[in-house]
Amino acid sequence: MSAPLLDMENLTVRFHGERTVHAVNGVSLTLQSGETLGILGESGSGKSVTLKTLLRLLPENRTEIGGTLRVDGQDVLALQGRALADHRGRTVSMVFQDPMLALDPVYRIGDQIAETVMRHEGCSRSEAMARALDMFKSVQMPSPERRLRAYPHEMSGGMRQRAMIALALACRPKLLLADEPTTALDATVQIQILLLLRDLQRQFGMGMIFVTHDIGVVVEVSDRVAVMYAGEIIETGTVHDIIRDARHPYTKGLLAANLHGAVKGARLNAISGAPPSLESRPTACSFAPRCPVARETCASQPPPNVAVGAQRQVRCILAQQ
């Protein structure tokens, strides 16, 4: 196998401030180019922090990052100054949940895209605007010429998200990060954007990491899935593995809570309790206090990361048999 596009080894992220938060606790991931990984997790699971680390977007003075992180052979954690600016948007790019916050409200969308292209490729303004128009066509923006001159507030939510995807892909990044890009959209628009991202990922042959809390969304776009809980990956596998044969009790609980195929009127098999606060680094299974099948050892020692197949791991003592 060729060297992976992304190689993340034992990543830890800790935030210091009034109190310390252990947001990411030893996450290892690889991604090949042309592959889509879905990261599934609830709020506070560390999924967005993991993504932001890939672009080094976290506040430097309060964040302590450990482990190694290579994208396209480059050590991302060592990047500084110009090299870091080159990395952002060129090698790795990101689509955020709220395009209204991610786009600059006082510049026309076309100018924002052109600026990025000129910065990274050193081309003329007219060439950059031509690229912006190309991108608008790629994301199926209605009346693309006219929309290039529009401001973000003049667009609907779905169009703004298309514009942000155009901006993110303008410099042909090798890796696209998508952080809940459809969560704020209406159902009929969400599916349009999901299908668009799926098509563009294939068309551009890039790697994509798609972060969401919605299992249905993961199924629509991902090849592989990593389920995160309390800053750790607790289960990975192909999307088939996760949907058809979830092994970790948390993954099973999430699938049940999705209500797809739930018996109407019957009680839901809900996971009790709430996620841990992460003020200290977990020393045992973080899920044990909520786990319906926890054993004594679960609360006293870290669970093994059991390989149950090729590229399929479950961080649970029960997966060992």
Binding site: T188, V189, Q192, V219, E220, V239, I243
Partner: peptide, 24 residues
């Protein structure tokens, strides 16, 4: 359209076409 815009939950039968275009 609303019903077919729901994600499929079946990796072998993913949604191939959005039921509606544009925003409300």
């Amino acid at each position: 359209a609303l019903l077919s815009a729901m994600p499929s939950m079946d990796p072998d039968r993913r949604t191939m076409e959005a039921p509606l275009t544009g925003d409300p």
